[in-house]
Nucleic acid binder design. Structure first.
Lengths: 82, 82, 82, 82
DNA sequence: CTGCCATTTTACCGGC
DNA sequence: GCCGGTAAAATGGCAG
């Protein structure tokens, strides 16, 4: 097989892996929509719920940043958590 | 437990389910990025790859749309597939 | 006139241009709705018509995407159309 | 020409009118984007500008509603503006 | 750090 | 008049 023939197969493999992963990702997105929908059916306000999720994500990010900073300080003091 | 206490638990449960799913989704996104990165390391052009993936998705969407339109026409003619 | 006074005027001008354009855009949206409505009055199914329009748009987008991909490949091969 | 042949032409005409209008609408959307872009180049914050536009639109809607209510009251009192 | 692209969110339109 | 779904806008994230 020629070199480019090999490359072609390789490319095809990459593309297919990506498409497989994107499919799973889309399935999860569908699941999430479904949960929101279910919540809505139980009387919750979806728009507000989305805000809650977003805020909690931000908080998490902040906390992780704080953790990272703490690690940095500890390392600087030769007290790394390992 | 009061009614609102119950609602609170219920909401918490919904939120947690969503957050769990979003985590998985984010993990998949990371996987996808990694595949692109790996492909790049093998010499492929990521920009082109993305376009290939997008085009293939578009083709699929197109086909589905054609199907949908056929269904609609059939329904409109009282010949729905049931 | 102060510098910020100038900026204020400038901003006002931008905003007004945008609002004027959005007005025109809204007018066109109204026109489109009217055409659909007229078609409906002539016995056509609006839902199907919308799908037809969507499909034709998709086809166009698809063709443009194919063109874009071709350009990319040519560029990647150092054979850009220039 | 048969009746359905006529309908076909009629439908085609509707579709084409719609597509023409949508093209113009898309062109305006592009113009708007361009104005934002220009404003950005002059140092304005696009995100804020969008908020401004949105708020002013709401105000307008409110004002129109107020006007409508006023008309209603005046009419009820036999004092229509006419 | 900038521009582009994907995802998300908002608004609209038709149907029930 | 509301609801569901669909299109448009807007925000956020990633590559270059």
């Amino acid at each position: 097989m020629t070199k480019s023939g090999f490359a072609k197969e390789h490319l095809k493999s990459f593309i297919e892996r990506i498409e497989r992963l994107e499919e799973e990702k889309a399935a999860l997105a569908a699941d999430i929509r479904e949960v929101y929908s279910e919540a809505k059916g139980t009387g919750f306000d979806v728009k507000i719920m989305r805000q809650v999720v977003r805020l909690r994500k931000l908080d998490t990010a902040d906390r992780q940043e704080q953790d990272a900073i703490l690690d940095l300080y500890l390392s600087a003091l030769g007290m790394g958590r390992e």
